[in-house]
Amino acid sequence: MVDLSDITFYVMIVVVIGGAVAALESKEIIYGAIGLAFSFLGVAALFFLLDAPFVAVFQITVYIGAVAVLILFTVMLVREGRWMHDSPGRTGKLAGVLTAAALALSLILAFLASKQLNSSEQSLPNGFNLVYIGQLISGPEAPILEVLALVLAASILGAVMLAKVDREDKP
């Protein structure tokens, strides 16, 4: 008895992990940027599966619409032939694989050993909770929203000031 959402989940696992591996290991870095966009899309599909449609649409809009496109433009701006071969050497690669494997193994063992996470009495009925999000954002979490607006404005201003080309030599 296989549910459609189960199939979607396993397909999206392949998309997310495959996109992440392609982002880090592809030969051309621009293909890596596209793989990263696919990984973001898979995460958005996971949000849909988790009954969070608003977050999923926000993820598509901001990550795929803004961040992935920004990364693509930057890759095209700074792309060059000789920076493809950033091979870390065998020792560095082994160290990276060992670190990541140790971290993943400890996390996975901890998750599998936890009693509460594996109990069957979870999965609360959680309807369409857009109203809750609205009440939270306009109510108790409103100061965070204000500070976040300031941070966004400051970071965009800083990015523009950093990347601005000085043209003092021209009239």
Binding site: L24, L46, A100, S123
Partner: peptide
């Protein structure tokens, strides 16, 4: 119904891939 642990395992693997990239890569975009 997919259990909660499956999502946690997926995110642990994704996080480990990110850590691997941070340790091994030299390219700023990576």
């Amino acid at each position: 119904m997919i259990p909660l642990v499956d999502y946690l395992l997926l995110s642990a693997v994704l996080f480990a891939i990110g850590v691997y990239g941070l340790v091994t890569k030299k390219n700023a975009m990576r």
